[in-house]
Amino acid sequence: MFMSGIKNITIGILALQGDFFEHAQVLRNLGVKNKYIKTADDLKNINGLIIPGGESTVMARLLKLTGLDKKIVFLAKRGLPIWGTCAGLILLSNRVRGGNFRPLRLLPISVNRNSYGRQINSFSEPLVVPVLGQKSMYAVYIRAPQITNTNKNVIVLARRLNKQAVAVQYQNILGTAFHPELTADSRFHGYFLALVRKNAS
């Protein structure tokens, strides 16, 4: 990781609804330029895109309203690295259970919305993500989705102790069921940035 490379990239953060500010905070601390994406025009000149946590039903509606959905799919197919956390993972997936909307279908997995239960069942626990080293990170699950099925070409980056996949990657698309942006551990952002830099060079 060369610091000089970091300065030249700009990460877009989808800012329709949800915790986009928390992602911006992490990127700022890492010295990475970022900008909020609200309309299709905002997608110009970005090297990567983060779809934050929030309500997937809300974001799905607003994506369609501004024509952002088609533009994002277009850029993803051309190799733009995209990372979705929680609601972002739901939006990127191929199939969603428990939601009345069509996802972007960029990540060949099936997800089940709110499948741990309601807010009272939200939880946090240590999670080892092997690509980030053996030191566990703290995974926060808030009304989180569960990944119920993954295509064989999808790489599972992390599993809970019960073997359930919670972090996945398919080529340039990254998804986590938890919220790395809510804790002080920025290693997952670092992993995404490495993907972005590799793609940009």
Binding site: A15, L16, Q17, G18, D19, F20, F21, E22, G53, G54, E55, V58, C86, A87, Q119, S122, F123, S124, V140, I142, R143, H179, L182, T183
Partner: peptide, 17 residues
């Protein structure tokens, strides 16, 4: 503090809504 993160965290997911 862990419970607080979960409780305040849901509000953060509601932002902009």
């Amino acid at each position: 503090p862990r419970l607080w993160l979960i409780k305040a965290g849901l509000a953060q997911m509601l932002k902009g809504g």
